[in-house]
Amino acid sequence: MAQLERFAECRNPAHEVDGVVTRMRTLGAGFASGDGVGVFNRVYLSVTEEVDRHVDGGRFPDAGAAIALDVLFAERYLAAVAAVAADRRPPACWRPLFQFRRHPGVRPLQFALAGINAHIGHDLPLAVVDTCRTLGCEPADIEDEFDRVGDILVSLEERIREDLMPGPDLFQIADPLTHLLGSWSLERARDGAWATALTLWALRELPSVTEAFRSRLDAAVGLVGRMLLTPVPD
């Protein structure tokens, strides 16, 4: 993959993190108000900036591995955006978010969590495998970095929900919305992503089996995303 080659050739990987942040900021400036993809982009940008601060603060045991994982993880979301911009189909896990991005009955928190679902459930395990291949290591070698990135995501989840959840004056909307979104957990999704990464790594010498597994993973995560985007009536 091109992004793996670019990363391997990069003399200062931190510049790659800066490049990812810049690209997401540029994307953000182009999204119309209320665009569901733009809602997720803002959330993901804040997460990436927080990971960058942790790297700069020396909070990762292996900064190089954390940067590789962060960059290769982000590249998968950016590739999905680029595919849609070029009139190509993105992975199935991302399609619901792009299909419903302007639906008036879908709330901002739904857009945010649908994007997080696609990125954690599908992109993160693939990024773990990408990182291991790039660095020539095993998943166990980057488990600490994976866990710390996951901890950042979980710590921000409550703030995301508070920022995007309708206020008390919209209780009639918030009640079914709370019921719908309460069925999805970022922490469980993160645990599932690690188990999936280990499975993909174990299957790496079986390309046909790996491809079938990835295809079904993509479809399953997309199904969950479609459910998260169920329109909530006024």
Rank of each mutant, 00 (worst) to 15 (best):
Q172N: 05
L135G: 04
L181W: 05
V51A: 05
L229W: 09
V84W: 02
R95H: 03
L124M: 14
F213V: 13
V47P: 00
R76D: 07
P139A: 03
S208R: 13
A65H: 07
F73C: 02
R107T: 06
A66T: 01
L69F: 06
Q110D: 10
W184T: 15
R89D: 13
A82H: 01
A197N: 08
H119C: 10
G30N: 13
M165F: 13
A118M: 05
P207M: 01
L153E: 09
A202L: 11
A63H: 00
T196V: 13
S183K: 15
L113K: 09
V106G: 09
A68P: 01
V106Q: 12
E157I: 05
A112F: 11
N117Y: 03
L170S: 09
F40D: 03
R11A: 15
L4Y: 01
A66V: 04
G36I: 12
P231Q: 08
V149E: 05
R226K: 14
A219C: 02
L109V: 15
T210G: 01
L69H: 05
I120S: 10
R102C: 10
G225H: 11
A212W: 01
S46A: 15
E211Y: 04
R76H: 10
P13F: 07
G30F: 02
L170F: 14
A82M: 02
Q172Y: 07
R88I: 04
G58Q: 03
G57Y: 00
N41L: 08
D56G: 00
A193L: 12
T48V: 15
L217M: 15
M227C: 07
I160P: 01
R188N: 14
Q3G: 00
A83I: 00
L124Y: 12
V128N: 08
V17L: 07
C137M: 14
R101H: 11
D175C: 09
G167H: 07
H103M: 05
E211S: 08
D62C: 08
G225D: 09
C132S: 12
V20Q: 03
F171N: 09
T178N: 11
D35P: 06
V39P: 02
A114H: 11
P96R: 12
E16Y: 02
P168K: 02
L198N: 13
V81H: 06
D151Q: 14
V39H: 08
R59T: 00
D130N: 04
G115E: 08
F7A: 04
A86E: 14
T199W: 08
D218T: 07
E187P: 00
A83E: 06
D130Q: 13
A195Q: 12
A86V: 06
A202P: 09
E16W: 02
P13I: 10
F171A: 15
A118Y: 04
G19Y: 10
A82G: 08
